[in-house]
Design a protein around this nucleic acid. Structure first.
Lengths: 256, 256
DNA sequence: CGTTTGTTTGACGTTACTCAAATCTCGTGG
DNA sequence: CCACGAGATTTGAGTAACGTCAAACAAACG
């Protein structure tokens, strides 16, 4: 019985329960290891398997990959992102998608050979279930994202994102009760993701800060002081300055 | 060898090349027919398999299903839609998704038993490929949609939608060169889908009409008079009134 | 044929975008 | 370790675009 291949030893895709490679038997793992190629990307690097001649199925071990595209007006958009554990199958993807894959933070990926991947999917029901589930999850996230982009108010979008991303991070291994987390990418990327301007993101964050709902720490850490209020804004819309007593309103204005 | 089950005889999912049931052998088809339930929905009807006790895997034979949700401010949103041929697996879907499935036009669906579905996916590589491809396609569409919602201008959104949907319809069986097609759902739904107000949709359509790019026919038919101009606006942004000579500008204003 | 539902139009208000400039942060090299 | 510089964030003022409200009009449905 072969031992775990060296390259797979520390990889999250193998180590983490519920991630694709964790469901493989030794033979499958060995075979896939021989038909895969790990790669480390720095923030800002593009993936583009077509150009680099790498396999078009990508497992994300750690980090975040975004689907970035440049619009005619020069503005960037991030239509989606993929997280640790996601399997991204680029076969049949529209050109704009596989040319736009870009690391939003430093990221480890693993390119998989389609042949072996399909073979495993056919033979191993657990692996199939995981791959299917991953693709489903991507779909659900995209649905949420679309629903989100339709929201009107900037503050709502930001509140939703913080609330949502905290939950994703929790799954991602963080502490469930953690009320602070590290924003994984720049505000400018967040603006692209939420379809707004960087300036507007900044202003929205300032409003949440002024209301005492969040507090920014060092190194892009965001501390959530009032999760209920955050969810309230994210889910039920913003019901803000109107019903504030004089006193509080004054405080808010001061804070701004 | 069993013949084709009655219920499957006229169903697109079986009839159309590349749709799920067309890849099944007689035995599989018979078995699935015994573990499925077809249903016809009128526009506006919700699916909600949980409530109705139906199976949570849904094949769309004909028509359009949208993921509708109501926001806090009372406005509706359509985060995504599913078309003829799509397989929608609601196992593991967030609540907001399976409670929001709503027919945007009169639609025929088929609820499939998860057990048999999984069994077939394991045994039949062709069927597996089709199901996987369908899920992928949904993802790609959602990515496009998200990228779209980030666009700023109302006219761009509308132009993109018309352009994009014409292409989908082509796949859907329409004539490839057809420059006119029937808008599959109400403008109010289009507004929800594109994250804007019905009034704004109406105004944007008027602008495209005034510029001679589209012409509305009877029964929600849209005739595309100038596909290049449409794509130009959809892809490269709107570059409109500025460089118009006096004369033309006058004509446009008249038309409006 | 009447009722309901959807679309169009207008006037007005609000919000987020634009442009420009100051400030801050982080990575780099001395 | 500190200083520098490029890139990112913040702030402000003005504007354009979309949302809102209300009402007329058209289309679909029974």
């Amino acid at each position: 019985m072969p031992s775990v291949p060296k390259k797979c030893n520390g990889c999250s895709l193998f180590r983490r329960q519920g991630f694709f490679c964790s469901a493989l038997c030794s033979e499958e793992l060995a075979k896939l290891a021989g038909h895969s190629r790990t790669k480390t990307l720095k923030r800002g690097q593009f993936v583009n398997p077509k150009d680099s001649g790498l396999w078009p199925i990508i497992g994300i071990a750690d980090g975040i990959i975004g689907v970035r595209r440049i619009q005619a007006d020069g503005r960037g958009t991030i239509a989606a992102f993929f997280l640790s554990g996601d399997i991204v199958d680029l076969r049949g993807a529209p050109k704009a998608m596989y040319t736009g894959l870009c690391a939003l933070s430093d990221t480890d990926v693993c390119h998989l050979s389609p042949g072996v991947f399909d073979e495993i999917l056919g033979a191993n029901p657990d692996a199939r279930k995981i791959a299917w589930g991953s693709l489903q999850l991507q779909t659900f996230r995209l649905v949420e994202h679309s629903a989100e982009l339709a929201k009107r108010q900037a503050v709502e979008k930001i509140a939703w994102f913080i609330s949502e991303f905290r939950a994703l991070h929790r799954i991602d291994g963080g502490n469930a009760n953690s009320v602070s987390f590290r924003m994984p990418f720049r505000q400018i990327d967040l603006a692209d993701y939420l379809g707004m301007q960087p300036e507007t993101v900044s202003r929205a964050l300032r409003i949440l800060r002024a209301r005492g709902i969040i507090r920014p720490g060092p190194r892009s850490v965001i501390e959530i002081l009032d999760p209920e209020a955050l969810d309230q804004i994210a889910l039920s819309g913003d019901v803000p300055p109107a019903p504030l007593p004089e006193e509080q309103e004054f405080r808010v204005l001061q804070a701004i």
